[in-house]
Design a protein around this nucleic acid. Structure first.
Length: 195
DNA sequence: ACATTAACAGGAA
DNA sequence: TTCCTGTTAATGT
């Protein structure tokens, strides 16, 4: 089943019962944590072709995080029974899942490494590059419609600092900055910026 | 040093 | 009108 979620709306909320495996057919969503104290932080941006929520599905637990559409997005819902059946019977499906989990793990280990070793400009570069992982998001284009404020939430830095860093990356010819839109010009160099 | 918050003005949607 | 961007000043670690 595919449903369209308008910009700013929740795709699912922390605490929800998990009945589906979710995928981004088209659009952009973020996985985030919003505390009752008002504190909020985002973890990953997921673009076209990205699947998520398999963790809670396999552990049979309530949703751990909020997922919010950053712009109008089409979300695919695969029923738990279907997911379970594929898991039990399809080797290609298991391989897909294994690759995805492996890539995610790599992504998060990388985040820790970058957090500790890189300056802010480079961290932003990695954060952007991670949203274009071809294995995790096979359908995404190199154009990212996202505000600088959202980038800040995803990268864990302030909006003003994002603005500064984007100009550094633009100067280096790695991205192009337009109103509400970011275009990746050189993904390979973005991936290793600052090394 | 370097990042953050706050504030504001100008421009886009 | 509301959202986004570019900038600066004050503040914090």
């Amino acid at each position: 089943m595919v449903r369209t979620v308008p910009a700013g709306q929740y795709v699912c909320m922390k605490g929800d019962a998990v009945e589906h495996w979710l995928g981004v057919v088209d659009g952009l969503v973020k996985m985030a944590s919003n505390w009752s104290s008002g504190k909020t932080t985002s973890f990953v941006g997921l673009s076209s072709g990205g699947w998520f929520g398999e963790g809670s599905l396999m552990k049979d637990e309530p949703r751990r995080y909020d997922v919010i559409a950053l712009r109008e997005s089409r979300i695919a819902y695969m029923k738990r029974s279907r997911f379970q059946h594929l898991l039990d019977h399809s080797i290609p499906f298991n391989r897909f899942l294994l690759i995805q989990l492996n890539e995610r793990l790599g992504q998060f280990i990388g985040m820790m490494e970058h957090e500790r070793l890189l300056n802010t400009d480079a961290r932003l570069a990695r954060c952007l590059a991670s949203m274009f992982n071809p294995l995790l998001y096979p359908g995404s284009s190199l154009e990212l419609r996202i505000s600088q404020e959202e980038i800040g939430l995803l990268a864990g830095i302030s909006r003003q600092r994002v603005n500064q860093a984007l100009h550094v990356l633009e100067q280096a010819g790695l991205v192009r900055v337009d109103y509400g839109t970011l275009t990746i010009l050189d993904l390979d160099r973005l991936r290793c910026f600052g090394e």
